[in-house]
Design a protein around this nucleic acid. Structure first.
Lengths: 127, 127
DNA sequence: ACGTTGTTCTATTAATATTATAACACACTG
DNA sequence: CAGTGTGTTATAATATTAATAGAACAACGT
């Protein structure tokens, strides 16, 4: 996994880390059962604090994307890949909604936004 | 325009306000040339501070969605509806990308996410 | 003249983000 | 068994952001 953090981004670095790990999972680079680095070693690698990595991990655990095993380590989606629940889909939709509204104001048609989504999905798959 | 602010949301109220104004534009309820309430009266209506409304307005101005005319008022998209620039599309895509990656990890197919997008666009149009 | 407009300034409070140490309890390994 | 590594917890300090508050300014419209 190659992680690249932009320190001056408006998106917090713990979120950048979590998002890039999610992309790694979406891409298949991080598979169920894989283990993630310890908070300390990962923090050292990335040049950030242990607690920042920890915060990213706990965000991912909230989303059920990883399992944190105390005194042991962190495992990617140990239950295997489960289909999104209704609630998870709804939360996702709520986040996407304002962005689509913005696209609509920018005169993007539904089809254009669909194309954008398809292209993004392909880009994610490629890395 | 009916604005509903959730004070306990994790999304800041200035952002909620800006997003709902954008939805109003996407829906056609706010048309180019329409004027928005003054920061003071709007803040009074919504039960929030003048500076918070001001922050939402300036966010919208950054996005070129409104024009703030000093000592006068605020006008919706005065240049008419212009097509999204390359840069605007790219910024939008960057924001949507991590959400799609999340959907992929949740085992949503490209088609399912496309359907989600289409449904959201329809919901926005209806209000 | 008068009231309204967005702007600017200063200030305070609360919440978040980030880093920093330190210590704890447990697991694994040599 | 001793040592190292694990996530966890606690405390603290700093910086940034979010939100509110009050005051004053300059310009516009009537």
């Amino acid at each position: 996994m190659f992680i690249e953090i932009k320190p001056n981004s408006s998106v917090p670095i713990y979120l950048q880390l979590a998002q890039q790990l999610i992309e790694g999972m979406a891409r298949g680079e991080l598979k169920p059962g894989d283990s993630l680095p310890s908070v300390r070693s990962f923090a050292a690698d990335l040049g950030m604090n242990m607690h920042t990595v920890n915060k990213a991990y706990h965000l991912l655990e909230e989303k059920d994307f990883i399992q944190i095993v105390p005194k042991s380590g962190v495992i990617v989606r140990p239950k295997g890949m489960e289909k999104a629940t209704q609630l998870q889909q709804q939360l996702l939709a709520e986040q996407i909604r304002p962005l689509l509204a913005e696209g609509m104001v920018l005169q993007l048609s539904e089809e254009e936004m669909v194309v954008m989504v398809r292209e993004l999905v392909q880009h994610i798959k490629e890395g």
